[in-house]
């Protein structure tokens, strides 16, 4: 007879230091990426090529911002991170979002790459938290994944629809998809990350980031197969000096215009005290 020795963490108590740090960093990375996804989806509500996509984009934005609130609530309760400070008073260089989202998404192929690849990358990380030994997160993950299903359908549908539009559009999609994948590879970080290993070792996460990235590559290759879009050109840059807190090699972060809107700076005077 075997007994299940998998630990259960109701809080951070009993977790190793690398595990605690790693958990904060990965939750922050998911929350920041979702915050930026929410912003870009919202911005595109009035720029999509068809009305149905506008409604979908608006809906995707709402669900991403809802997920941000869920993840930030975990950060607040267990790490004391104030959600208001995380958005209003944090310098851009401290954000841990996928770098592909740092700037405005100017064209629809960029939106589709964001939806089909960056959004899916975060969903894959959340999927690795299913059945997590860290109970507070486990309870939110199912709801988020349930909603993510429609994000993935939307991304996949548009990826294939654009790939059929002709050589120029397909080329644009390919460049954006490769840029998104390169950016996501950096965000996942090196395969030997100590914090990530600690999370998997403590059953907080079921898969290491390197495995999740491989699974993502399979998803994307399957989506792109037969479309003429070649995603193999995506580069894996050197990860020397990679920072687990910002999930980048160098310094970066969302541009000031995006932060201005995210922080509601234009309407600061109307903020409720």
């Amino acid at each position: 007879m075997t007994t299940d020795t998998k630990p259960v963490f109701e809080s951070l108590e009993g977790m190793s230091e690398p595990c605690r740090l790693g958990l904060r960093n990965i939750i922050m990375a998911c929350a920041d990426t979702k915050l930026l996804l929410g912003y870009h989806y919202g911005e595109w509500t009035f720029g999509t090529p068809e009305l149905e996509a506008a409604v979908a984009s608006c809906s995707l934005s709402q669900s991403e911002l809802g997920h941000v609130r869920l993840l930030q609530a975990v950060l607040k309760k267990h790490y004391g991170d104030d959600p208001e400070r995380l958005i209003d008073n944090r310098p851009a260089a401290e954000f841990a979002n996928v770098a592909f989202l740092d700037e405005q998404i100017e064209r629809w192929p960029g939106f589709v790459a964001m939806n089909a690849i960056v959004d899916l990358a975060v969903a894959r990380v959340l999927h690795a938290f299913r059945g997590s030994s860290f109970k507070p997160l486990r309870m939110s993950v199912e709801k988020m994944l349930d909603e993510e299903r429609y994000h993935i359908h939307h991304g996949r549908g548009w990826f294939r629809a654009l790939a059929r539009q002709g050589e120029v559009t397909r080329g644009s999609l390919e460049r954006q998809a490769c840029a998104a994948l390169t950016s996501v590879a950096e965000w996942f970080g090196p395969a030997d990350d100590e914090q990530d290993a600690a999370l998997v070792g403590a059953s907080v996460k079921s898969m290491a980031n390197a495995e999740i990235f491989r699974a993502l590559l399979e998803d994307v290759s399957e989506m792109a197969s037969g479309t003429g879009v070649n995603v193999a050109a995506a580069q894996r840059a050197s990860l020397d000096g990679w920072n687990p807190a910002t999930r980048r090699v160098g310094v970066g972060g969302p541009n000031e215009e995006i932060l201005f809107h995210l922080r509601g700076s234009k309407n600061e005077v109307f903020k409720l005290g």
């Binding site: 149905e52 996509a53 409604v55 979908a56 608006c58 809906s59 995707l60 429609y150 994000h151 359908h153 939307h154 996949r156 549908g157 548009w158 294939r160 629809a161 059929r164």
Partner: peptide, 12 residues
Amino acid sequence: TDDDLAKAYAWT
């Protein structure tokens, strides 16, 4: 254009 998009559009 396909089943994936139809699901996303219907749901949203």
